[in-house]
Design a protein around this nucleic acid. Structure first.
Length: 259
DNA sequence: ATGGTTGCCGAGCAA
């Protein structure tokens, strides 16, 4: 089972680039972030003939997540548990039934800038809620994974210019610690289990020629439960997508699971 | 470099 995460930065703006990538990469399951659309306006027709069933959790204007799957999706849930007053669409879950059943969590973690401030407080509170949800799923012992835009640069080598991110919500020590607290429950960072060292990025800003200068950061991650990590065969980043026509500022990060 | 660019939607926010 090939599974990918892709922050597309607007589903309508990616009506050509996203299907083109799906045809080339042929993932079985994709979690999307920043669809920036309400569910009723999601353009299902751009996926016609590609064989995906689609589950969305959108909102007007920004945020929004979705799951595409060539395999049956079961038990879809929307929203991150732990705060009924949270109206931001950043979390979706579904069970994908292949050789084995795998629970998929697609997430768009809050950016948190400017820090300090209320947006940073929301980010850290959201990460605490995510840790609680992760712990609850671990207790089930079902293979599962949490994939998406974490808006966290886990370590300095995950940025081309770490000094430029020193005071940013994506790299602050509290953000990194919160990410590690989740990881340390027993997850495997799938990409880093397969590929080590600097120079591997999933995001290049539209501004200041970041892509041309390869001034990127690695913020899109797939965390695998112990039972899912046992199934990991390969992982990679589709970097070339960033150089295509009308690209997102993120590229897909993918894994191959024996599932 | 307190700039720069893109996407939402049709002004200004979010990233």
């Amino acid at each position: 089972m090939k599974l990918a995460t892709f922050n597309i930065n607007g589903i309508k703006a990616r009506a050509e680039a996203l299907p083109a990538w799906l045809r080339a990469a042929e993932p079985d399951v994709v979690v999307l972030q920043e669809i920036k659309s309400v569910d009723e306006a999601f353009p299902h027709e751009i996926f016609d003939g590609l064989g995906y069933s689609i589950e969305t959790h959108g909102q007007k204007g920004f945020n929004g997540v979705a799951i595409l799957s060539k395999l049956p999706l079961e038990d879809v849930t929307r929203g991150l548990p732990g705060d009924d007053s949270d109206e931001q669409a950043r979390w979706i879950e579904a069970t994908v039934v292949g050789k084995v059943a795998v629970r998929i969590c697609g997430l768009y973690l809050p950016n948190g800038n400017p820090a300090p401030g209320p947006k940073y407080d929301y980010k850290l509170a959201w990460m605490a809620r995510m840790r609680a949800r992760a712990a609850a799923l671990l207790a089930s012992e079902m293979p599962f994974l949490m994939a998406g835009d974490y808006n966290v640069i886990p370590q300095d080598e995950d940025a081309a210019k770490p000094e430029a991110w020193r005071g940013d919500a994506l790299a602050l020590p509290e953000s990194r610690a919160a990410f590690r607290r989740i990881l340390n429950l027993g997850f495997t960072d799938a990409f880093r289990a397969r590929v080590q060292g600097p120079g591997h990025y999933s995001f290049w800003d539209y501004q200041a020629g970041a892509w041309a200068k390869n001034n990127g950061i690695l913020i899109d991650h797939l965390l695998l439960s112990p039972q899912a990590a046992d199934l990991l065969r390969d992982a990679g980043i589709d970097k070339a997508v960033r150089g295509g026509d009308k690209p997102s500022d993120h590229v897909p990060v993918w894994i191959d699971l024996d599932a």
